[in-house]
Design a protein around this nucleic acid. Structure first.
Lengths: 227, 227
DNA sequence: ACCTGAACACCGTTCAAGT
DNA sequence: ACCTGAACACCGTTCAAGT
């Protein structure tokens, strides 16, 4: 908002919860999840550990705040879309891309939601998926159920989605997994072994979108059947 | 040596990876996730920490083994079902009930899958959902995609599903969440505030099954459309 | 109020040493 | 091979003390 914070003064920049969360996100982005420790944070912000706890409560709170901030940013710009389906797709993609940009987000989302299923993180996601849901033709008593399903799919897909490393590492990883699957005993795993080839050249983002469409189709089919 | 083992049968029972995993699951079930430490384990098994590491590798391996064991047990008995839809529902319920019985499972599932998306845990789940998928009329090139969607939904729903505490605590928890949602600003959260009431008397298990049905409906609708 | 930093009670993991 | 248990390098968190 105001750009007054960018002063030439380099001595101290006043500690605040916001600044701590910001530093935490940066640390997570650059050095990975295991690098976010109180000591690292004190070093980066050149303070003592007590100062952190004066603003932030607990380490888990900080992690939650970091997740919440990233999610909020990803959902900040409401997507302009022609149809409710398109809006849902846009929301889903915005969140998916946030998880790609911040490799630590998926694990945190899962952890945070398991710890507090109806906390602010879920709240934000629920609202964003639910808003277009109203225009989809679903009768109001079913809004909760259908939106839940959509949100749950998103959570699951993100958890398993791309995380550490860039694109080439991901491809290499998929190749390794593919090989492992293909070499399983067909008697024990008749499905996996026949399907293994399909996972070799699969695109996470594309797969994710297809899944969203599939759930949407299920929701609409339900509406049509009720009508 | 052989004569020495015979002296007192009650003391030592030979340590093994299996026994360690078993003790870990018991510890997780009875005292919660944070109680599973190497020291606790050594105490329970009356050994030294080195003995644990001689059999188990790392703490995360142990957690993965515990999750894998529980999942494998839950899927051990292949369900007799009349239709592929029913079989998928049975698999889903078996896993859901396992997560209810072992409150730590959901978090571990999410963590384990984020760490290694195509590890043995995912493998087992994928195979179980995928097997009946073949009889659903989905063309083979789509098997991977449709099964992925189903698995992802399951993961997400379980992550957010019931975890700590028994039924009464869960109900109390839902009530608190409901109240919080209802008291939000309708301008900021128009969707949440209108559906808050629906979450008050909602049944996790029922909701889960409805979600599975919804995804199934999407999959079948896709088949019908292609035909 | 805001911050410092030593101290506390833990962790997971290692490794020389025993049997 | 299998196990012991002290030691190591960390954690998150607290708290008397400073400004």
């Amino acid at each position: 908002m105001a750009s007054q914070t960018r002063q030439s003064q380099r001595r101290r920049q006043v500690l605040s919860r916001e600044r701590i969360v910001e530093a935490a996100i940066e640390l997570l982005d650059t050095t990975g999840e295991s690098a976010l420790t109180v000591r690292m944070l004190t070093e980066r912000l050149s303070t003592g550990s007590g100062a952190i706890y004066h603003h932030v409560g607990t380490m888990n709170d900080l992690l939650e705040a970091a997740s919440d901030t990233v999610i909020a940013n990803a959902l900040a710009v409401p997507p302009a879309a022609d149809t409710p389906e398109d809006e849902i797709r846009a929301v889903a993609l915005a969140l998916f891309d946030a998880a790609t940009e911040h490799p630590w987000l998926a694990a945190q989302l899962a952890a945070q939601i398991t710890r507090n299923p109806w906390g602010s993180v879920t709240l934000r996601i629920f609202e964003s998926f639910g808003r277009p849901m109203r225009a989809l033709g679903v009768p109001q008593p079913d809004w909760f159920t259908t939106t839940s399903t959509l949100v749950h799919y998103f959570i699951g897909a993100t958890t398993q989605g791309p995380h550490d490393g860039g694109k080439p590492e991901r491809a290499e990883f998929l190749d390794t997994a593919f090989e492992a699957w293909q070499n399983l005993d067909p008697d024990d795993y008749p499905f996996i072994t026949t399907i293994a080839a399909q996972m070799r050249d699969h695109d996470d983002r594309r797969q994710f979108l297809t899944g969203i469409d599939l759930v949407l189709k299920g929701i609409v089919a339900r509406v049509d059947h009720a009508a």
